[in-house]
Every structure is written in C-alpha cells, then in structure tokens.
Amino acid sequence: MWLIMEIVEHVSVRIDHIKELFVDALNEGDSEEMKRKFGFAVRYHSDLLELGFYINKCFSSSMLCLILLGAAILGCASFGYMQAGSSTYLIVCACWFFGLAIICISGQHLTDESLSIGDVIYDTKWYEVGLSLRKDILFVMMRCQRPMILRAAGFGVMNYIMIVSVLRTSYSFVSLLGATS
C-alpha cells in the first residue's frame, strides 16, 4: 500500500513538471522553440500515461484482493468487536481501513492531478499561437479529459467512491452476521 502511494506521489510530481513544461512552452516567444518545447512536453506526457498503464498492470490484482478481502475482514472484525468488545478487533479494522484509505485517496489524487493538466493548458494564451500548434494543443486538451486512474483488476477504480463501496459491503457483512447469530 505504501509502495503504491509513493509511486502515485512520484507520478504526481511528474505531472506537476509536465504542467510547468506546457506553460513554459506556450509562453515562449519564438514559434520554433515553442513547437520544440511543446513537442517535448507531449512526449513526456505520453510516457507518463504509459507509466500509468504499467502501474495498473503491476498492481491491479493486488488492489482487487485488498478490496475483496478488506470488505470481508472489516465486516467480520467489526462484528467481532461488537460481540466481544476486544480491542484486537478494533485494531484489525483500523489497519485494514487505513490501508484501503491510502490506496483510494492516492487513486483519487492521481485522477485529480491528471485532469488538471488540461486546465493548466487552457489557462495559458493557447489561442494566440499558430494554427498548426493550436490543433495539437486541442488534441492534448482532449486527451487530458480522460484521467489516469488506479484500477482494481477491472472491478473498479480506486477513489473515494470505492472507500464508500467497501464500507457498505462491510456493513452488509455485519448485518448478515448479526442476523445469523
């Protein structure tokens, strides 16, 4: 969980750098230098998107296990705490929730940061550049509307909504265990 959070923070720093590169390129006075800098920023952005693909490829099955096991363990440990009152159950709940929260908050942060690239480009004076570069800028802005996300093996996206979904499922486990006991 910490590794995924640190990777997302690294990608976030790279996204901030990409935003600076786009702004620097679009504020350049010389049109040839502007095209060169903009092309570099686009290639950098493309490489970062590819890195996001590999992050999902490496960690999506782990995140799926975290979701599935987390919901069951949170539900069973919560029920155990309500029945026995032991602080051990409470610690288990806190640790699993903390791990889930780390991943989901990191996923939401990644999504928000990647969407902000288009906003930064839009806030520049992109409409004052040449027509050919303006078309390239519009393509980049359209691509920035599709955010980078952390996936849980096709099961869902790791974000704030996933935290709520897992907690709802955990509550269902608590209700089921309460009804059967």
Rank of each mutant, 00 (worst) to 15 (best):
K35R: 15
S86D: 14
I15G: 05
T124I: 00
M63K: 06
G70K: 09
H45A: 07
H17L: 11
R146T: 12
H10P: 09
I91P: 13
L68M: 15
C104Y: 02
R151Y: 12
I121W: 04
G156P: 01
C144F: 01
L150W: 05
I105R: 12
G52K: 03
F139K: 12
D112H: 15
A101H: 01
L138K: 03
I161C: 11
I161R: 11
E33F: 12
T169H: 15
I18E: 06
S86A: 12
V8N: 00
G156S: 09
N56H: 01
M141H: 01
L115M: 12
I103H: 00
M1S: 10
V11I: 04
L48S: 00
M148G: 00
C144D: 03
T180Q: 14
L48K: 02
A25W: 01
S31C: 13
F173C: 12
A94W: 13
R143D: 10
N159C: 00
I91K: 14
I73N: 11
K19L: 09
L110I: 08
G85S: 07
M1Q: 10
K135L: 10
V8F: 01
A77L: 00
C104I: 05
A25Y: 06
H45C: 06
L177C: 08
S116H: 00
R146F: 06
D30S: 02
M5P: 07
G29T: 09
L110M: 14
A71M: 14
E28Y: 05
Y44R: 13
L177F: 09
M34L: 11
L177Q: 02
A77H: 00
S31M: 10
S165G: 13
S114T: 03
F40N: 07
D16K: 03
I67G: 07
G70P: 08
K37W: 04
A25I: 07
L26V: 04
F98T: 11
F22Q: 02
E28G: 02
S87L: 15
A84E: 15
Q145F: 09
